[in-house]
Amino acid sequence: MSNYIFRRVLLSVPTLLAISIIIFAILALAPGDPLSQLALNPGIPESTRQLIRTQFGLDDPWPVRYWKWLTSLLRGDWGFSFSSRSPVIDIVMQRVPQTLQVVGFAYLLAVVLAIPIGILAAVRQYSWFDQLATVFSFVGFSVPSFFTGLLLMLVFAVRLKWFPIVYDSLLGFGSATEVLAQLRQMAMPVTVLVVQQTAALTRFTRSAMLDNLGQNYVRTARAKGLPYRRVVLRHVFSNSLIPIVTLVALSIPTIFGGAIITENLFRVNGLGALLITSINNSDTPVVMALSFVFAVLMVFSNLVADVMYGVLDPRVRYN
């Protein structure tokens, strides 16, 4: 098993390298001179600018620049933010807890909701429950998440005043009242993400279950006298788990992508909000770093899916 995991980890290195080259190439091809701000300053003569260029290696050939960029990225030296003058890595790390809190909670809730709904919908195919679940999932992945968010805001924050409109990231988890306030402010952003995530996952669980429910081994299990419940939950479900787990792992980036929208809508100051503010402030170092963070997340979730394959299906390990 550890051998299998090791091979998978090794295989994800080239992907990460390829993505890092793509992101670097985008940056390198982008128009604009990083020193253009300095050029406007009459106090900095042309020769000084040239000196800065050489010092920072801006005139080096691109493989050299790429190597420098990559190695400093790996060392945790992500440069300095243009707008706040502090190290990019510090700014990013400050934002991670808020994002993880909302995203993680939403993610768990979506999985816990979607799998039972999907199973039940498949077992009772074409029942009213299945129809309802189908309509719900179509609505769920057709409605843009910013619109769900706005509707929630309109009903629950503006009209009913149940939840606060603005997210307070200074709240801790110290006392019962704080925990309650946390839950209240998380309710709306979490719901938006859950609606989006549950929709896709329910549909997927249902079809994976349906693929297996018609198989011969199901009939065999029933024929030897096993209760239907046990057949569905142990036999069919474990066989359906492989595609389900794939989607669960692969949707990690989707839910982080969704967080870009919810964080901006509900003013949660996480990574997604940071990305948009940095874009609006033309804060290139932060934008670059965040793009790479999202890419790493993507590769990481691919890796998780691969490893889970190996855990769930021994055949994969020896391939």
């Binding site: 793009s291 999202f294 890419a295």
Partner: peptide, 9 residues
């Protein structure tokens, strides 16, 4: 495995 929306942004 490219991050869609962040990359477009």
């Amino acid at each position: 495995s490219l991050p869609g929306v962040p990359l477009i942004l």
